[in-house]
């Protein structure tokens, strides 16, 4: 397949690279072997482009999980990467501070007052987030501790201290 990008999703690729670097570091500290692979994404918004994924393996070669780049064109997010394990998948989305919001307007007399409501609580900084609970509107920014929780969630393999 010819790889012809109509526009480089450079920002997504930069954030993806930062994510993979973090995960490589966290994995190595737990004795998990990491292996990058190249995948080709083909999005209406950007055309075809290459993005790296990351396989996480145990010492005996068993695959624990894979970080799969999904794309930069995501509804209500700036990008998405899925952590696909042996029993489940965790969706990581790239959000700006505040995350996705709803704006509503209330008319008071002759003036309109707008009100912005964050869809998810806990989105303070920009970064990769995982939604813990849709019902409670709670999301968490990815860090080493959450990564190990998610790895357990998707693979049933517990590396947490």
């Amino acid at each position: 397949m010819a790889i012809v990008a109509t526009q480089s999703p450079a920002a997504y690729l930069a954030r993806l690279e930062a994510l993979l670097t973090d995960v490589e570091q966290w994995s190595r500290a737990k004795g998990v072997i990491t292996r990058r692979y190249a995948s080709v994404l083909d999005e209406e918004a950007y055309g075809c482009y290459e993005a790296s994924g990351l396989q996480l393996l145990l010492g005996d070669g068993r695959l624990l999980a894979t970080l799969v780049p999904v794309g930069a064109s995501i509804i209500a997010a700036k990008g998405r990467v899925d952590l696909e394990g042996t029993v489940d998948r965790a969706i990581l989305v790239d959000w700006d501070p505040g995350g996705p919001v709803f704006e509503t307007a209330i008319r008071i007399g002759d003036t309109m007052q707008t009100h912005t409501q964050a869809i998810y609580k806990g989105v303070k900084d920009s970064g990769w987030y995982w939604v813990e609970s849709r019902e409670l509107s709670r999301a968490h920014r990815l860090n080493e501790s959450l990564f190990l929780d998610l790895l357990f969630l998707v693979s049933d393999y517990d590396l947490r201290p």
Partner: peptide
């Protein structure tokens, strides 16, 4: 043969369509 449109998941679709 077609490129993918913006992607979503059941959680986000549920939140947006319900609103």
């Amino acid at each position: 043969r077609k490129s993918t449109p913006p992607q979503t998941d059941p959680g986000m679709a549920h939140v947006l369509l319900k609103e």
